[in-house]
Nucleic acid binder design. Structure first.
Lengths: 208, 208
DNA sequence: GTCTATAAAGGGATAGAC
DNA sequence: GTCTATCCCTTTATAGAC
């Protein structure tokens, strides 16, 4: 009986210690980057002692890698989580772009993850590649498939167009949100999306 | 006479101490980021003592800010250094895009600067904004002007299109070079550039 | 398994000699 | 103006108590 009670108390604020540590590590690494984060801060944020952190993870680098890989895996599935939708391609593309920009703009965690991945891509090249594989490649491939499956759009190189579209959206997000450029280069998302959509419509029209 | 000799010796490997320190600081900050760089390493890389660094710059943060502002100012003028060229717009645009991708791919310093600016944009938001103002805004504005001055391209929103084009190119660079994604998402620059160019040509054709 | 305490090294910043 | 030597704090990582 007493044992069950203890388990319940321990589960009150967290799952197991590993999850608890990862939670604290996420908070700190996303806020301060790799070099800017100390294992002390991680331990405090996780609500455990530093020794406990080291008993579950080999060292700071190991903890960082496990965390980033986990986050990278989680961050896909938000926009294309459901299978690519159906209907008039120009409407669908507009919806996808709108949703992508909205999600990126709202999700502070996403901005922080981009900062960390790009910021540490010199020191941790394999980690950067994992993120390309887990976050960018699936989006580009899904969009490529979608574009290729609509012959009425008359697209010569669906993959290249997919990269143009994804690149435009992600770069817009980087400038406006990650780099705090909203006031310096102000622009409504709709102008970007309308122009993107018109390019595709006019491309289909001119190619026919 | 002796005085002149000393001056000559001092100028042999460097300009004044300030420039020497900035050179060492650049090497270290671009390689390791802000938190990952120690003032000891900067002093060694600059070939001076740590006290000398502190005699010319207030503290680590001050040195970092001066350096990044200087680099940001320098990095424009490489692609659009000369005024926007003249001739058939689709050829000019292709040339600009090719040159931009080439320069970014070759220039390791540019990749490193992107890592640092984006990586530290949470800790140094004003610095990120300075870089937007100095590096991105002039490019977008120059390109916007160029697009707007060619009515035969039938562009509704030149600024939005400029951001799409710049965004596509910069994001391509980030994925291929900064994030080491060449092998994971391989693509020839020419495919991107051809697709971009065709979009603009077909847009002009369909709008007329 | 988890904590407290501590060892060992590194980092920001300065005092004082020259 | 520049250097050496040093202060003091933080950081990584672990040993040992419980």
């Amino acid at each position: 009986m007493a044992r069950i009670k203890v388990d319940e108390v321990e589960k009150e604020n967290s799952l197991d210690k590993v999850e608890q540590i990862l939670q604290g590590a996420m908070q700190e690494f996303l806020k301060n980057g790799y070099a800017g984060t100390s294992m002390d801060k991680v331990a405090v944020a996780a609500g455990v002692s530093k020794a406990t952190v080291y008993s579950h993870f080999q060292d700071k680098e190991g903890l960082f890698k496990v965390l980033v890989e986990k986050l990278a895996g989680k961050k896909f599935n938000s926009i294309f989580g459901t299978q690519p939708p159906e209907g008039d391609p120009t409407i669908v593309l507009r919806q996808l772009a709108t949703k992508a920009l909205e999600l990126m703009a709202i999700d502070q965690e996403h901005s922080a993850l981009m900062r960390v991945i790009i910021g540490e891509s010199g020191r941790f090249p394999e980690l950067a590649q994992i993120c390309v594989r887990a976050m960018i490649k699936p989006v580009v491939e899904t969009l490529t498939q979608y574009l290729a499956s609509h012959p009425e759009l008359k697209i010569n190189d669906p993959e290249a167009l997919a990269r143009i579209l994804v690149g435009s959206l992600v770069h817009f997000h980087i400038v406006q949100d990650v780099l705090h450029g909203k006031d310096i280069l102000p622009m409504e998302s709709d102008r970007l999306i309308n122009t993107m959509t018109n390019l595709i419509i006019n491309n289909a029209q001119a190619s026919s």
